[in-house]
């Protein structure tokens, strides 16, 4: 059984937005710090660093999770998606991101990457999520600019557009 020694660095390997990555981390290093400092993926923001604000939310093996409450070593061999993985091609916003832009679902943008990841996970799992369910998922995030109303509008609009696109695909 391997025992990793404190204050030494070990390789951590996982896939980030579909691409295999390797970073060096101490046992105590948080996933947030590996993403931002080790891999330069600064799209994931760090707010409270104790799991309350939701800014650092990423997707781990298909589920939304707080990257600040995960040690880097815990994602070894797993699949992580971050806000950088949302755009369908370089320079083009996803349906969800575009809805946030049109509805002013962000102002300072600090909480936005986490909220996008939560909603992306939700709509992938449950494309028909109703308003109550969306609110329940958003309750894990703090936004101090918008008052949440434009975020809800963006989320509902994005959901409807996803479903419109799906219906068109089915009938085509």
């Amino acid at each position: 059984m391997p025992k990793l020694t404190k204050s030494e660095r070990y390789p951590v390997r996982f896939t980030l937005n579909g691409r295999p990555v390797e970073a060096w981390a101490e046992p105590r290093t948080l996933l947030t710090d590996v993403l931002r400092h080790g891999l330069g993926s600064t799209g994931t923001h760090v707010g409270c660093e104790h799991g309350v604000c939701g800014a650092c939310t990423v997707e781990i093996d298909g589920e939304p999770a707080r990257a600040c409450l995960v040690l880097a070593g815990q994602v070894d061999g797993q699949a992580v998606r971050t806000v950088e993985g949302l755009e369908p091609e370089a320079g083009r916003l996803s349906v969800l991101q575009d809805a946030f832009r049109r509805h002013h679902g962000l102002q300072c943008g600090f909480c936005t990457p986490g909220i996008l990841m939560t909603l992306d996970c939700l709509f992938r799992a449950r494309p028909d999520a109703d308003e109550a369910e969306i609110r329940d998922h958003l309750s894990g995030h703090l936004c101090r600019c918008t008052g949440y109303a434009p975020i809800m509008r963006a989320a509902l609009d994005a959901r409807d557009r996803f479903n419109q696109a799906r219906r068109e695909e089915t009938h085509a």
Partner: peptide, 21 residues
């Protein structure tokens, strides 16, 4: 803040976890 340093054991079996503890 960040955690203070600690050694880390990733147990693969219950016996390994109990040994380490």
């Amino acid at each position: 803040m960040k955690p203070a340093p600690f050694d880390f054991v990733r147990a693969a079996t219950l016996a390994e976890a109990l040994d380490a503890l």
